[in-house]
Nucleic acid binder design. Structure first.
Length: 285
DNA sequence: CGCGTTTGACCGGCGC
DNA sequence: GCGCCGGTCAAACGCG
C-alpha cells in the first residue's frame, strides 16, 4: 500500500489524463524543449524535431517506450500491490520458486507521473540526490545508444528513471523520471561534485519553473517551434516546461561535467531534483 | 560481505 | 495470429 501512496497516489489527475504513450510525451518534448547553451560555447542548440516522423530521430528512439509504458506500469503492479519493487525483488529472491518473476500476475496500475529532462551533458547518469540501482539496459530501436533503467534504492520508493542518449545529438541525455519519491534525498556517497550538480539542477528548476509557467507559447502546441531563446546564463540553465496535460513536466538544461562547481556554490537543496520539480501540492510527504 | 552493474531471457502490449 | 519491441527479472559478476 505504501507503494501506491508514495508512488504517486496523490497525483491530481488520473491515468487517463496521462500521456497515452511516451512517444507523444517525447514528441511534446520535441516541440517544447529547446536548448540553451551552457554559456561556454555560446551556441544555441536547435530544438529537436517535434515530429516523431524522423526515422532515426532521437524522439523516436527516446519515445520508443511508447506501447510499453502500460506494460511497464503493469509490471509494476506488484509494487502497487503494496510492495516496493525492491522488496518484491528481494522477496522473490528469498523464495526460490520456479521463475518467481516470470509468473507475476498481471494487474493494471495507474501510470506514474513522469518528468523528462533533456540534458546536454557528458554524464550519462546524472546525480540527483537520490540513489539509484540499475536494473536493466536495453538497446532502443533507431538509436545507437542503449537505454538504462534505474530504480530508487529506497525499498519504500517506487520511483524509476530511464536514461538514454539522444540519437540525434549524443551530447544530449534524456532522463525520464517516473513516480514520486516518498523520502528525502540520501547523503551523497558518490561525491560532492555530482551532488552539487544535482543541486544546481534543482535550484535552477525551481527558479525557472515559475518563469516558464507564464509563457503562453509553451502551452500551445501550435506555436511554431518555440525555441526558448533564453540568453545564456549559467552552466546549469534549466528549462522546465509545463505542458497542458500536466502529466509531464519537461525540462532541458545544459551542463558540462567540467563545469560542476564546488559544493556551496549553490544554495543547499536537501531534496532531490524531482522533489524540486514537483509542485508542493503534488508531494506526498 | 554488501551493494551495484551487467546481461540474456522472458513477458506482455501493440501493430500489422 | 504473429512478430516486434519496450520493460523487467534475476543470476552472475565486479568492486570497494
Amino acid at each position: 500500500m505504501a507503494g501506491v501512496e508514495c508512488g504517486g497516489g496523490d497525483w491530481p489527475f488520473s491515468a487517463e489524463e496521462a500521456y497515452a504513450d511516451s512517444s507523444a510525451l517525447l514528441a511534446e518534448i520535441g516541440w517544447a524543449a529547446g536548448f540553451v547553451d551552457d554559456g561556454c560555447a555560446g551556441e544555441l542548440l536547435p530544438p529537436l524535431d517535434p515530429h516523431p516522423a524522423t526515422p532515426a530521430g532521437s524522439m523516436e528512439g527516446a519515445g520508443a517506450s511508447s506501447s510499453s509504458t502500460d506494460d511497464g506500469a503493469t509490471r509494476e503492479a506488484a509494487d502497487a500491490d503494496g510492495r516496493p519493487a525492491a522488496a518484491t525483488e528481494a522477496a522473490s529472491k528469498t523464495a526460490p520458486a520456479p521463475a518467481p518473476g516470470k509468473t507475476m500476475k498481471k494487474q493494471k496500475r495507474a501510470r506514474q507521473p513522469r518528468f523528462a529532462f533533456m540534458t546536454k551533458t557528458e554524464i550519462d547518469h546524472l546525480e540527483d540526490g537520490y540513489r539509484w540501482r540499475k536494473y536493466g539496459q536495453k538497446a532502443v530501436k533507431n538509436s545507437p545508444f542503449p537505454r538504462s533503467y534505474y530504480r530508487c534504492t529506497n525499498n519504500k520508493c517506487t520511483v524509476k528513471k530511464r536514461v538514454e542518449r539522444s540519437s540525434e545529438d549524443p551530447s544530449v541525455v534524456i532522463t525520464t523520471y517516473e513516480g514520486q519519491h516518498c523520502h528525502h534525498t540520501v547523503t551523497f556517497p558518490r561525491g560532492a561534485g555530482a551532488a552539487t550538480l544535482a543541486s544546481q539542477m534543482a535550484f535552477s528548476a525551481h527558479h525557472h519553473h515559475l518563469m516558464y509557467n507564464d509563457l503562453p507559447a509553451l502551452h500551445s502546441p501550435t506555436t511554431q517551434n518555440p525555441l526558448f531563446s533564453v540568453p545564456a546564463m549559467s552552466s546549469s540553465l534549466l528549462q522546465p516546461l509545463h505542458c497542458n496535460r500536466q502529466e509531464l513536466q519537461v525540462a532541458s538544461y545544459t551542463t558540462q561535467a567540467s563545469s560542476i562547481s564546488s559544493p556551496g556554490s549553490v544554495p543547499a537543496v536537501d531534496k532531490g531534483l524531482l522533489d524540486d520539480m514537483v509542485p508542493p501540492a503534488m508531494r506526498h510527504g
